[in-house]
Structure formats: structure tokens, C-alpha cells
Amino acid sequence: MRIGTLKTDYAADEALFDTRLQKLLILLACAAAVLFPFVASPYWLFLACLCAINVASATGLNILTGYTGLVSLGQAAFMSVGAYTVAVLEIHAGTPFLLNLLVGGLLTALVGIGVGIPSLRVKGLYLAIATIAASVVLHFVFAHWPLTGGMQGLSMPPARLFGLALDQPFQLYWLILPVTALMVLGAANLFRTRVGRAFIAIRDRDISAEVLGIPLLRYKLMSFAVSSFYAGLAGGLWAYFFRVVTPESFPLVNSIFYLAAIIVGGMGTILGGILGAVFMTMVPELLKFVAGLVTPFYPDALALLAPVRTIVFGALIVGFLIFEPHGLAEIWRRIRRFFHLWPFRT
């Protein structure tokens, strides 16, 4: 048990990682992330990149839904805006990838603000439905606009860095992971300041927040902007990763996937967005693995993979909401507490 964490220095107390253990864990995680690509197979690198992209997007959704309480079923559609922007810029302008990503993010933020405008008048579920409507409209636009290549979509060249094409998971890893890490760090910072507090206040009790000095519309739109900026960046990374963007790349079920990720991980915690996105990305792989194991005994197992995955996703959403509404992050917290107290108490 830790005794005597008396803090007189507020700067230390306000730090992101305030215990020595936390600092150590973060350092270890960074070291592992740097070493990983040198030991992992392409398959695991592929998964790592996919996880990172999903972490980026889930973190964005967590800002909007988990922290601000505005449910969105449009995260995948927002990602498509970023992905298409990046693809179009890469194909037609050939500008540097970081610039493309940034433009993709900003453009998505604008779209997000547009979608968020009804949020002052309509709440909760109505808003969720408005985001579905926005997804439908965006899908239509991308499927019919010549610039975005219609139903065929766009195939794009890889990102280039000093003439080197980033087209293997190994190289892309060094693009995707740092960007994701910065995004997560930014999100964590956000909630150390008045902006993040305003978001949470809106979630917890938005009408009294107004009387306490928070202009609701402004902060709701800001939350939409940040969240869709994140989605746009994630979509841009996605585009560089897969290099083919079609209207079917970002269906409504993907939006549900991200919602599930933050529910399973833990809404309204940064750690939750990370854990949830990684977990949900790995579940299908795990199912694939299991299907591979049972195929010798049950040859149709692979055919059942898709529906079983659908069921597992649904069951995870329902199960976590009912039994562990604070998600994996809460389980993690309990484990930590157990070890802090151990061996004094159980």
C-alpha cells in the first residue's frame, strides 16, 4: 500500500501521469512500441497499424460521446471524409502526406460542425439519428460525385517520405503510430483544461452548465469539431494504409463498431478508448483463429465467421452496458487497486 503521497506541488499533482508506477508503465509501453516492428511478423504489424487507426478514431468518438454525451452514429462516415480528402489530394495534387492528413482532418471538422448544428435544439437520441442521416447523405455524395470516383471509389499512390514509398506495414507503422500517439496525448491534455471540463459538464447536466458560464452551442460544436477532426485523421491514415477508398469502405456498421469500442473500453476515459479499440479490433482475429482450430472438426466454421462476429459485437455491447458499464478501463483500475493494496488487503 502506498502511504504518504502528500502533494504540495500542484504542478506535480496536475501532471498526466502522477505516480511513479504510471510513468514506468508508459515508458515501458513506448519502448515496446519502438521495438515491436523489429520483432513482429507482417501480420502482427498489419494488426498493430489497424489497431492504432481504430484507437485514433475511437478516441475521437470518445471525446464526443463518452465525454460530451453526444451520441454519434456517424464516426465511420466522418472517417470517409478524411479518407476521400487524402485520396483526392494524393492523386490530384501530390502534396506531402502530413499536409494531406491535416487538410483531411480540418475538412472533416467542418463537416462535423455542420452535423452538430442541430445539437442545440435536439438532444441525445434525436442527435444520434441526425448523425445517421448525415452518414446517408455523405455516402450518397461519395457514391455519385465524379471527383470521388463513384461506386468504384479511388485507388491512390502510397505516402512518400524523401522519395521512399510507405507501402509496407513496417513503414506505415512509423507513420500511423506516432500520429495516433499524438492524438491520444492531445485528447488526454484536453481534459486537464477548461475545454475538457466544459465538455464533461455538458454531458452531466447541460442546462446548469449554461448558467455556470459555458456557452452550450459553442462547446457542443467544438466537441463535434475535435471528434470529427480525429475521425478525419483516422480516415486519412486508413486511406494510406489500404490505398483504396470506396463508398462501402465506411458503412454504418463501422460507426457501430466504434461506438461498441468505447462502450467496451469505457466511455469517458482516455484509456477506455484505447483498450476498447484494440480489443474490438482483435476480437475478429481471435474468432478467425478459433474458426481455424475447429475447421478440422466442423468444416463450415469459416462460413459462420461473419455472422458470429456480428453476434459477438452485439453481445459485447449489451453485456458491457449491463454488467460493466464503465468498461475495460474500470476492470483495469480494479486490477491496479488490487495490486496497490496487496498484500495488505484483498
Partner: peptide
């Protein structure tokens, strides 16, 4: 889910829809 936020309950029904869709497919 009684007493939980309406949004949580809403998401439970999304999960339910997913389960049912997978079920008929199997």
C-alpha cells in the same frame, strides 16, 4: 437497464439488433 441513461438503453437495442441479424444469418 432501468434508471440508466436513455442513451445507454438505446445502445443496448443497437447491440440487440446486431445479435438478431447474426442469429438469422447463422
Amino acid at each position: 437497464m432501468l434508471g440508466e441513461s436513455p442513451i445507454s438503453v438505446f445502445m443496448v437495442t443497437i447491440g440487440l439488433g446486431s445479435i438478431l441479424a447474426g442469429f438469422v444469418q447463422i
